[in-house]
Amino acid sequence: MFKKLTVAVAAASAMGFSALAVSETVPSPLGDFDVSMTATLASDYIWRGQSQTAGEAAIQGSLDVAHESGLYAGIWASNVDDAAFPGNTSGADIEVDYYVGYGYGFTDDISADLQLAKYTYPQASEWNGYEIIPSITAYGFTLGYKYGVETGVHPSYTWAGYEYELPYETTLFASYGYTDSKGGSEDYNDWAVGVGKSLFGLDVTLTYTDTDISSADCEATYGKDDYCDSNLTVAVSKSF
């Protein structure tokens, strides 16, 4: 597995802890490629502190291909619940994301990544969108920025994260993010802290998430006041 690609491709997946747990190196005349697939079962799909499945379980999967040069591409999918999208009555029940990017490792501890991601909802195209995502990681700390490419409105998300390797194949991680909707909806902060561990060939994560969205604002946006509440999510992933 290419050391300089680890952070780059892991950042592309919502379950970054397990995104590159296993990979297959494929030689070719154009250089070596790393190919990995991951399947995840989670008690909820949390996006920036908010449930995308209305508090229900999520089944997710990804396919990542990374070239030794640092270029990579992938696809990620999850079930969603249209109730988690304000004003959406289309019955959307799936999200499919596509991404391409370039990651480079300056040293074993410092790397940078630039990614273009497209988010699609086959039954609710009004929610489709693009983001340009630069990030830099150094000694376990990551600072990143997501710039929404939309006509007239360019929402953004800024986040900082930290991962620390504990003994016994255990990882401690935390993040803090700020959503700037640029007038599209309410701006807010979210945060998360969790732990991940490899057990019997599976990657298990336990994550606590929360936001500073008030119950009143949450109900005004989603029709319910619990979509933005604190959440304790369990996820189990298997990489192939």
Rank of each mutant, 00 (worst) to 15 (best):
L41V: 13
L71E: 03
S43C: 03
D34V: 10
D64R: 11
A73N: 00
V35M: 08
H67D: 11
Y45K: 04
S69I: 04
D44Y: 08
S43Y: 02
R48F: 11
T40P: 11
F85E: 01
D34T: 11
A84D: 05
I75W: 06
E68G: 02
Q50G: 06
A73K: 01
E56H: 14
T53Q: 07
A54W: 14
S78P: 05
A54Q: 10
I46G: 09
L63F: 09
W76I: 04
G74W: 06
A83C: 01
G74E: 11
F33N: 03
G61Q: 02
F85K: 03
D64V: 07
S51A: 06
F85A: 02
L63T: 08
A39L: 14
A73F: 14
T53I: 01
S36I: 07
P86V: 12
D64W: 10
G55A: 12
M37S: 13
W47N: 12
E56Y: 13
S43G: 06
F85R: 01
A54S: 14
D82Q: 09
A73R: 00
G55H: 12
G61K: 00
Q60G: 02
A73D: 06
L41G: 11
A84N: 11
D34Y: 05
I75Q: 08
A73M: 15
L71W: 13
W76V: 02
G55K: 09
E56M: 08
T40G: 11
S62T: 14
A77H: 02
Q52H: 09
S69L: 03
A57V: 05
E68F: 01
T40C: 10
Q60V: 04
Q52T: 00
P86F: 11
S51K: 03
D64T: 04
V35K: 02
T53S: 08
D64H: 12
L63A: 14
Q52V: 05
T40W: 06
S62F: 11
D81T: 05
